[in-house]
């Protein structure tokens, strides 16, 4: 009966994974690589469940079934070579399965997928089997966007591409459907970039550049809303306020994103002119005082 229960339980878990996200499975849904990690996790989980029930069950069974009672004697067995070779090979075979799963899923986690939209927000027709020239492609074909993420005690700074040299802190705003490539680095101590729904962690280590990517699905923005927000925080101890180093990724439609970008660049310009004015005023004040 127990044997019948395992596949039933396994199917139930696979059938309704969304309901158990977080409790049993890693977060996903914000990017194809996070989804692939979750798929791989579920594969290992199902296999692990069999191993868990098998090993713990046998342990508990032998503990109870062979409990010392009056009149019982212990069988004086020293070993069984065939059996021992059998379970050594068995353990190795399971690992070969997991290795195979991993290498099947790996490209979909590691290699950035092409964007779903072009620079103007128009959808690009997706071919199912694009022939890629190289297996370790660093940038996907078609449009993509590269943002440099810089960890600092205790804030994330994002450097946007383009001539404006836009620097933004904590909240990264990106267009949905666009593949975003991240170059992750740090200016002081080691940090770790992690937005669970967008994929795994990538350490920000001073002197090194770490790379990852994400692509928020087009339908991620709820009906009637302007944006979708994914939260996360630094995952490497970076000092006393490590717990307060939050980061957010905000997905917008291309039109909204362009507006946000233009507004932010304008605001920054205004702020810079204001600073210049204030400095001038200060200097004048000081020279008057002399």
């Amino acid at each position: 009966m127990a044997l019948a229960l395992i596949p039933a339980l396994a199917t139930a878990l696979i059938a309704a994974p969304a309901a158990h996200a977080g409790l049993f499975f890693p977060e996903a849904g914000g990017s194809p690589n996070a989804d692939s990690i979750k798929t791989l996790y579920i594969m290992v989980f199902v296999l692990a469940l069999f191993i868990f029930v098998g090993v713990e069950g046998t342990l508990l069974y032998s503990l109870i079934k062979y409990r010392a009672r009056k009149g019982r004697t212990a069988a004086q067995i020293h070993g069984n070579t065939k059996l021992e070779i059998g379970w050594t090979v068995g353990a190795a075979v399971i690992l070969i399965f997991i290795t195979t799963f991993t290498f099947i899923e790996l490209p979909s986690i590691k290699d950035p997928k092409p964007s779903l939209i072009d620079e103007n927000g128009n959808q690009i027709a997706q071919a199912d089997n694009i022939q890629l020239a190289a297996t370790d492609l660093k940038t996907p074909p078609g449009p993509s966007m590269r943002i440099t993420v810089n960890g600092q005690q205790y804030v994330w700074r994002y450097h946007y591409p383009g001539q404006d040299n836009l620097l933004v802190y904590t909240d990264m705003v990106v267009p949905v459907g666009m593949t975003v490539l991240l170059d992750i680095t740090s200016d002081d101590v080691a940090h770790s970039w992690w937005i669970p729904k967008l994929g795994g962690k990538f350490d920000a280590i001073p002197g090194y550049t770490n790379r990852t990517w994400f692509r928020i699905p087009l339908d991620a923005i709820p009906e009637g809303q302007k944006q979708v927000v994914f939260t996360g925080q630094c995952a490497e101890l970076c000092g006393r306020n490590h717990a307060n180093m939050h980061g957010r990724v905000i997905g917008m439609r291309m039109a909204d994103y362009k507006k946000w970008y233009a507004d932010t660049v304008a605001q920054e310009k205004v702020a810079k002119t204001d600073v210049a004015k204030q400095q001038k005023a200060l200097q004048e004040q000081q020279s008057e005082g002399q």
Partner: peptide, 29 residues
């Protein structure tokens, strides 16, 4: 990753051997 996997084999062997030690014994709790 692969070298970490390999450790599971000798570790599994140990666990199986312990269970087999209890098997058909008279286990005093």
């Amino acid at each position: 990753m692969l070298s970490s996997f390999l450790i599971a084999v000798p570790t599994g062997v140990k666990i199986f051997n312990w269970i087999a030690t209890l098997w058909r014994g008279t286990v005093e709790w």
